[in-house]
Nucleic acid binder design. Structure first.
Lengths: 114, 114
DNA sequence: TTCATATTTCCATAACTATGGAAACATGAA
DNA sequence: TTCATGTTTCCATAGTTATGGAAATATGAA
């Protein structure tokens, strides 16, 4: 991920309601959440939520799919991982301090299919 | 890290010049960089840079130390790692999608002193 | 003390962002 | 077609953020 993209992603997440929406979508997982559900969960007015979703979409953090009248939103884990990759490289890559990368408990101990 | 803090950190990094400053400090490592050096490297006016540094400091991403007439700034890796931890948990923790966490090359393969 | 250098604070201005009402658009049901 | 529902677009307003000049502060050197 280029720093330009990372900026867009950081920006998308650097707002209370958008971070909240993203977390809700992460919790919802594959099932996703309809825009209306998100509106209910966050208490945001429709137009406001649409604006925030637009910013998350442009950043590639959220994708959506129309299902009849509702639009189902999902968190885009790939993009989130790309962002984490960027931040990790830009936190650790050029540093000589060996302790720099250590303490992050990076991911829940899920089985990895290496 | 609480989501309130994460927001402050995200916000600190979600700006072109601040991300740039932070990356420069990461590259500089332990040696750090003086405010004046940062001004030279970024081309920002003093007052502008001070404002950005203030935001990075408040977020705990940058610490500084006076050395005579210059003020030496350093990236705070601990805070960066805490932010990465927050994001990772909020990307992966509650998800049932096993592929979610996989592709992140989290840290450069440094020797770890487990 | 006086001076030069480094940085910050103060302040005004310009630019951007968040908010939400009202109208428009999209879809499916009757 | 008509209607109800879900979502977006349009637009104005209020609030926040970025920028940098000028003055102030801090430090060390002469």
């Amino acid at each position: 991920m280029k720093s330009e993209n990372a900026l867009t992603c950081l920006n998308a997440l650097a707002q209370e309601h958008r971070l909240n929406v993203f977390r809700l979508l992460v919790q919802a997982g594959e099932a996703g959440m309809a825009v209306g559900e998100l509106a209910g969960a966050t208490g945001l007015a429709g137009a406001t939520l649409t604006n925030h979703l637009h910013i998350l979409r442009r950043a590639g953090m959220v994708s959506d799919e129309r299902r009849g009248r509702v639009i189902l939103c999902r968190a885009n884990y790939k993009q989130m991982n790309a962002l984490l990759g960027f931040l990790t490289e830009n936190c650790c890559a050029s540093s000589e301090d060996p302790s720099c990368c250590e303490p992050v408990a990076v991911c829940k101990p899920t089985r990895r299919k290496v």
